[in-house]
């Protein structure tokens, strides 16, 4: 019993990592419908931001706090450039967007390799986050608690922005019905750019946080990309709520499967569940109800 409770907690922590990686994607893919295969490389850019800031600042604790907002800006800026130069021109050609962003992702990986070298670099974990806390029979590393907290804060921030700020209202209006929003005087072009900035910025933040548990190498982003898409697809397009529930559910599923088999088999199990689930409910957990006819 203890083990199961412990595993559920592990699932929660795995889920929060998934959520953090997927949150930005739930904006750019979920809300805007852009399949951005370079999302993983934005996460990787966040990882290297954490590394560069740590080299400059020295103290691991302070550098983490500085790197989080800087990572948001770096990821966001990269997203903005990508949106303006390429994605904007391909909005009605989703498959072309997929291929183009995949190519951009490969280029970014090679750039990282040329700038920082092929071997992984080490981002030191702040003293305060080393070690673990015993909870219900399992030791939960403090880094994971920090990531959970960061995931909660990020979701809250995105929700607040979408719900209560004028910019958020405009985003929701464009997602709900683009033509009507434009008729009402909203520049959908600027809204798109803004949404993409926030979504990519969140990938940068995720990257900074993920240096606490994973590696920082040119291919780091790839390992999170598929999981992030799974979360958004299973959660349902256009709903942050869906991403949250799906991330936690997938995390818990993975953890429980893993307890009774091996990690790679657990992954197969999770994929099977998702395939069956999408057959039954292709629109995902939650859907956006709109009045548009499309």
């Amino acid at each position: 019993m203890d083990l199961l409770v412990g595993q559920l907690f592990t699932g929660l922590s795995t889920g929060s990592i998934l959520l953090l990686a997927a949150l930005g994607l739930s904006l750019t893919y979920g809300q805007m419908g852009v399949i951005n295969m370079a999302h993983g490389e934005f996460i990787m850019a966040g990882c290297y931001t954490a590394y560069v800031v740590q080299q400059a600042v020295g103290d691991a604790g302070a550098s983490l706090l500085i790197a989080l907002p800087v990572g948001f800006l770096v990821g966001g800026a990269m997203g903005l450039v990508l949106e303006t130069l390429l994605i904007r021109r391909l909005y009605h050609r989703p498959l072309d967007t997929l291929l183009v962003t995949f190519g951009v992702g490969l280029i970014l990986q090679q750039v990282a390799r040329d700038v920082f070298g092929a071997p992984a670099v080490n981002v030191a974990v702040p003293e305060a986050l080393r070690g673990g806390v015993d909870l219900l029979g399992v030791t939960v590393p403090k880094t994971r608690l920090f990531i959970m907290a960061l995931a909660v804060v990020s979701v809250a921030a995105v929700t607040l922005v979408l719900r209560f700020t004028p910019a958020g209202r405009r985003i929701r209006a464009v997602v709900g019905n683009r033509d009507l929003a434009e008729t009402a005087g909203i520049s959908s072009r600027r809204v798109d750019a803004g949404t993409f900035f926030i979504g990519s910025g969140l990938a940068g933040v995720a990257g900074v946080a993920l240096t606490l548990i994973g590696s920082t190498s040119p291919t780091t982003g790839q390992s999170y990309l598929v999981d992030a898409f799974l979360v958004v697809v299973a959660g349902g397009m256009g709903r942050i709520k869906g991403a949250v529930v799906a991330a936690v559910a997938l995390g818990a599923l993975q953890a429980v499967f893993e307890t009774y088999s091996t990690a790679s088999l657990a992954k197969v199990g999770v994929f099977l569940v998702i395939v069956v689930f999408l057959q039954l409910r292709p629109q995902g957990l939650f859907t956006l109800r709109t009045r548009s006819l499309a």
Binding site: M32, G33, V34, I35, Y91, H92, P94, V174, V175, G176, N177, R178, D179, V233, A234, G236, M237, G238, L278, P282, Q283, G284, T290, S292, A294
Partner: peptide, 10 residues
């Protein structure tokens, strides 16, 4: 559905 959500999960 908004214009851009051409690609669904499936």
């Amino acid at each position: 559905m908004p214009l851009r959500l051409k690609l669904k999960a499936r």
